[in-house]
Design a protein around this nucleic acid. Structure first.
Lengths: 226, 226
DNA sequence: TAGATTGTTAATCGATTAACAATC
DNA sequence: TAGATTGTTAATCGATTAACAATC
């Protein structure tokens, strides 16, 4: 029973490896750039040079989702982009609310990131009376107390959490109770919501800074060895 | 010549695998929390439950850098934290400048992230005359034209790039020419600086959003199958 | 000493790369 | 047709897990 999952006809999600999934957004970005530059077709070899990965990996990755190329020709850039978008849910019309209207929340809302990926920010929420009622870009900041009411009238797919870590657990529970299926978590904490199949994506920007520091430090040592 | 790198006595950086390095900041975070909670000792088994990874992995990871534990006892939390900090360069006194004083740059400067990791933000730079001279937190915004002069008087380890993508290449070249050894790049582009061993860490927050969307979409499919 | 838990080796698993037949 | 490049299988490589002897 467990062994027969080799792509039966309508298994829509044939369990693609996490390593491949993590690379998809990068293909998305490079394909956008190719389109912007008016490029119509590309081979795995050419793309491999641009992206600094092997051509083999590109072909393997894409083939997890189907044969998007054509032998002897390569890949049609627009078609491939459309497929990647489809896989990543761009164009599904996902919606988001941002909970926490501090510096980070505001910076996110003002960035073109969501729009580029087809995610619509419906509203922001905060507890600070001085902030409630303000507008960030063209997004209104609501009273956090009205989150439940808001969700009665709007389908929300993603809750973006940019609030202080100490309120994370409480808010995550509320979000989960509302049936919002996804959390994009910037608080620095890592919520554990029992008995829920909510999707949580934790962002730890600081981890990236530390990786950089680690590398700096290694170089120092390497330099000392001479 | 290439094959003899199996930990000769003073090879200070014995080539730890990238997978391990990526996990170090997470240990850093959890250890801070343990300290905050007053925990003095922890076993790999206990930590494994907290972090949702195998105890085996924890022991393997830590042993890449030395035997930090004690048989029959576990790990001394404070000692382990000190070691991880040392490995990650916390306490090296690294310094940074933030180039681009827009929403993201300001949000970063105001966050406690740098301080927590022992990185000191010396200054911000921007090209907008309306912004130059302002203060963000306690960091002053300088004219971008004065970057070179500033670096004559200060040792800068990291350039945090939060400027528009179209200026990335130009600025990255300037940063490189100044001998700044590290770039923390938020522009969305991926700079290619030839003939340089500058360390570049690219941050693509949007990639994480897309991974979340991918997961949401998979769940939808899974739900449809019933 | 007995119990616990590390450090470390060996076994397994997964991901990447190489190679090439299929085919446009 | 000849040339190019994919799709896909097989080989390699690296990372994770399991197991257990060392030892506190």
């Amino acid at each position: 029973m467990k062994q027969e999952n080799k792509r039966t006809s309508h298994q829509a999600t044939p369990e693609v490896s996490p390593a491949v999934i993590k690379r998809l957004p990068r293909y998305f970005r490079y394909l956008r750039e190719l389109i912007r530059n008016g490029k119509l077709r590309i081979s795995s070899g050419e793309l491999s040079k641009m992206m600094h990965v092997t051509a083999s990996q590109i072909r393997q990755d894409l083939n997890c989702f189907g044969g998007f190329g054509q032998q002897g020709y390569g890949y049609n850039v627009n078609y491939l982009y459309a497929k990647i978008c489809e896989i990543l849910g761009v164009g599904e019309g996902y919606t988001a609310v941002v909970i926490g209207a501090g510096n980070l929340g505001r910076a996110l809302v003002r960035s073109p990131m969501f729009e580029k990926r087809g995610v619509d920010i419906l509203a922001m929420f905060d507890v600070d009376p001085l902030i409630i009622g303000q507008t960030v870009g063209d997004v209104k900041v609501h009273d956090m107390a009205e989150l439940e009411k808001f969700c009665e009238h709007h389908r929300v797919d993603i809750a973006v959490l940019t609030l202080p870590k100490n309120r994370l657990h409480e808010v995550a529970e509320r979000v989960n109770a509302l049936g919002i299926p996804g959390i994009w978590n910037f608080t620095g904490g890592e919520p554990d919501i029992a008995d829920s199949d909510i999707v949580i994506e934790n962002v730890h920007i600081g981890d990236s800074l530390m990786t950089l520091c680690y590398e700096l430090r290694s170089r120092e040592y390497a330099a000392e060895e001479n």
